[in-house]
Amino acid sequence: MKILVVDDSKAMRAIVKRALSTLDRVAGATILEAVDGREALEVIQAESPDLVLSDWNMPEMTGIELLQALHEAGTVPTFGFVTSESTPEMHELAKTHGARFLVSKPFTPESLDQALAGVL
């Protein structure tokens, strides 16, 4: 399994990766990283990850713009947001564009695992 973690914060990518490393559900997965939506698009095209965990608010290309681009290309991998912003409007927008879940920061490995339980 390949999991792509997309966040402009290196610290947050480290935290998400560390949380994933504790979850039996994704044991042995290869973790890929991208610093924004634009780089994520390139990684997705090259590596075809099984799961994308993306921040929402990023420079160059936001998470929702990434999801829209994937949607337009017709190749949306299993996709979830991990974001500090979590309004009902964002949940609806994410769902409309094909996101499977939205995990709010701060999160715990348990809350991440709970979100993944519905999609993996």
Binding site: S9, M12, T83, S84, E85
Partner: peptide
């Protein structure tokens, strides 16, 4: 810098989520 920025991002994001209406958060 990355860590302090992320603390601000998470705090601001949660504040924004508490405020009503349509708002955007900067980097």
């Amino acid at each position: 810098s990355d860590a302090v920025g992320e603390l601000a991002n998470m705090t601001g994001g949660n504040v924004k989520s508490t405020l009503c209406g349509v708002c955007q958060l900067s980097l």
